[in-house]
Amino acid sequence: MKKIRVAIFGTGNIGTDLLVKIFRSKYLECNLFSGRSFLSLGLKKFRAEKLKNKRKYRNLILSDKGVNALVKNSNNFDLIFDCTSAKLHKKNFKLFRKLKKKIINLTPTDDGYMCIPVLNLEECNKSIELNMVSCGAQSSVPVAFTMSKIFKKRVQYIETTSTISSKSAGPATRLNLDEYIYSTQRAINYFARVNKCKAILNLNPAFPHINMETTTYAKIKGKKVSKSELNRFKKLLKSIISKLRKYVRGHKIIVEPTLIDDVLVVKTKTIGAGDYLPSYAGNLDIINCAAVAAGEYYAKKK
């Protein structure tokens, strides 16, 4: 099978980790890795790798010309992973449209069809632009979705808190906490069909670095949650998480669904694959794994 050729735009933590992942993919091939400076860690790393292993990287163009490199090399790829920032995405997305390329958007903006691969790959595949929302959304939305699937309109409110290691939060993440919160809440609204929800993000500097952990709560009104309902919830959640684990292997439940009064709690943990940043950066891993899953699905259907 012929691989789909892609470009990665943005050479920070996200872009660089994505590139490592794509070199493992059976369905995707990265031909262009474009950033702003050869001093960026991502470009530096792959410039050195390319010198070491010319054969493996023979098709990979490295550039510090940013978006201009995308225009210049537009015949070399069909799909763009945008790993820059919200600001740059807003600036460039019209140009992406002009290039007539499929876009997978990893910046915290509202643009594109929200994609949580375990829930809606098929549905969003037709869209020209996919939005990977946030790391917190990739881990909490499957749980929130399951809550609303079982308890339907009785779900009054959903809340999610993610804690990530400080080391894994780069400068863009730190400047975009508000955008992270808005987009995560938007995804919960949309997928779990609740009007009221809240997203919280903590950074923890502990050493050794902690793994990403996400707790999702649902306030359930009406009659008390019965044992059989809770079991049905556990069963459905288990099947959804095991599907999710097909593309994020380090993801698991660490506090089983627990009922505290009228609040249902589930806590999950994501250990990263350790591709670019070490395994504590599960937050990076989960959004990139989701982006790769979306890209591969597109490649398979094309």
Binding site: T161, T163, I254
Partner: peptide, 10 residues
Amino acid sequence: VAGQEDLILD
């Protein structure tokens, strides 16, 4: 850290 109350149950 402050804000990590969910760790308590764990």
